[in-house]
Design a binder for these strands. Structure first.
Lengths: 229, 229
DNA sequence: ACAAAAGTGTTTGTTGTACACCCATGC
DNA sequence: GCATGGGTGTACAACAAACACTTTTGT
């Protein structure tokens, strides 16, 4: 049995770099491989593309199967095709990056029998295949894109304080921002709306909550607005 | 004979959107298909990935075979994987975009027995497969990227006048720029160098020639410089 | 009352934008 | 000498950056 083709074909996979943010760090979701090659080693979640399946579908399917995540922000990153990136044979992988908010997808760890865990971005173990390279490309992309597309909100809960928003940017861009200038700028964009709610359970003055208004953003984009931090 | 695998695999191809610039327009290089499906129709140059070959290598190989182009600027664009994008079977394609300067790669037309020709960006014929979609994505990428990476120089000859440079940006961004402000900005970047040469064969005052200094650009990037038009 | 973070404006420097005329050359 | 594009500077507006204190709440 099997499938026969006139010419040899590389295998095709999808891999995902899943970023999450908690109070301390930007984190990445990894799974521990149970099969050779690299059994026992940490790797990006991912798997083989089925014929008839769009690769983004593969990516979402594998994410769900391996980590329990669904309905996340997912975007294609780059396709890696070096013939020796997998020791078995030529495997081409289409890499994606995903953004999830850790407080709502808490420690999705151990699912499936496989071991899954979040690692701080600057405390990543050795990874299988060329996954370190893929992760690096993904992080660079995130750093770049977050400045001119409002994707950072995907890392936060639906309702957030301006301090959380600022902290998110500081974590990812890896530099400090001025509080007053930041607030002035983000509020002037008029794409996040002030809610009549404040945070709870904090041991100091509670901050006002805000929400990203995608409709308003889309409308402004149509009229030439450019998000830029 | 043939190659047999345990699980079915999609076929893998590379396709290239080649942009070129002449005095009038931004152009795209297309080839006329000689085989089914879509025989006789215009399409992006491209072809099947060989096992053991990085996909960028496939893209360059196909470009050379089908259009005679080599040593061009080439960058990965996106991977298209909708199962029905090829009527024969599931074919996943990794799309690239290339930038060449038309004055040095003039009418690379008819090579190979295949028919190749340049088409103005807003006068593209119906294309095979989903190539119109790929072209659209490539054009959007070019428009976006040209504003924050110095890739536009790839579309010009080595030595160019400031007017040519400006015209290139105007053609691609599809809007007019102010001559004085443009010159001020681009010269202040100190990444193009003034040559002791002027253009020839023009029926008016000859303009000074300039050249992009990649070394200077790279050095400035290392110190935090950001190209932005 | 104290600790912790929220919230708030002004000044100064830098960058972007709008705008019009003289100059050099080929025909 | 005329047509064609080359080359140049200034004034004003908008935006970015730097900076410190008062307010609110929980313990």
């Amino acid at each position: 049995m099997g499938f026969t083709y006139k010419y040899a074909r590389p295998a095709l996979t999808a891999d995902c770099v899943v970023f999450g943010l908690d109070e301390e760090d930007l984190k990445v979701l990894l799974i521990q491989r149970d099969l050779e090659p690299f059994a026992g080693m940490w790797a990006l979640p991912g798997g083989f593309v089925a014929v008839g399946e769009a690769i983004e579908t593969t990516a979402r399917r594998e994410l769900l199967e391996e980590t329990g995540l669904k309905n996340v922000f997912l975007e294609q990153l780059h396709t890696f095709s070096e013939p020796d990136r997998d020791p078995r044979e030529h495997v081409v992988t289409v890499a994606f990056y995903a953004l999830v908010n850790l407080s709502e997808h808490k420690v999705q760890a151990a699912t499936d029998a496989r071991n899954a865990a979040w690692f701080a971005i600057d405390d990543i173990p050795k990874l299988a295949f060329d996954h370190e390279k893929i992760l690096k490309v993904a992080y660079e992309r995130l750093k770049g894109k977050i400045r001119y597309r409002p994707i950072g909100f995907e890392l936060l809960p639906d309702k957030f304080t301006l301090s959380h928003l600022q902290l998110m940017y500081e974590k990812i861009l890896d530099r400090e921002l001025d509080k007053r200038n930041f607030r002035k700028k983000i509020l002037n964009m008029e794409i996040i709306e002030e809610l009549n709610e404040i945070e709870t359970d904090v041991a100091h003055r509670a901050a006002r909550l805000y929400r990203f208004n995608k409709k308003k953003y889309d409308a402004k984009v149509k009229e030439g607005f450019d998000f830029e931090l």
